[in-house]
């Protein structure tokens, strides 16, 4: 049951990020990393405790700026 709840939250997070892109007309932004930030968030929430996942996601987004090299960065 716990696993299910977590993947539910992860889906919500993923959907939120995708939706924000559309609503705020920012579909152009493509992640520097693979997997992309939204997928990363989804995975992180699924796999890690919520607070750790939040920290990881925040850190990931902060690294995803124009000067970063990007790269393969799985959770």
């Amino acid at each position: 049951m716990a696993g299910r709840g977590k993947s539910l939250i992860s889906e919500i997070a993923y959907a939120s990020i995708q939706g924000f892109k559309t609503i705020f007309l920012m579909q152009g932004a493509i992640c520097k990393f693979t997997p992309s930030c939204s997928q990363y968030a989804r995975e992180a929430i699924k796999k890690l405790p919520l607070h750790l996942a939040m920290i990881k996601i925040t850190w990931r987004v902060l690294r995803c700026h124009p000067l970063s090299k990007g790269g393969f960065d799985p959770i």
Partner: peptide, 22 residues
């Protein structure tokens, strides 16, 4: 990995601002 390689090869990433500016 393959996708990354493709992006690199096609030069997508250097132009890309990433997620933070969004």
């Amino acid at each position: 990995q393959e996708m990354m390689a493709l992006y690199k090869a096609e030069g997508v990433n250097p132009l890309n601002p990433g997620c933070l500016p969004m």
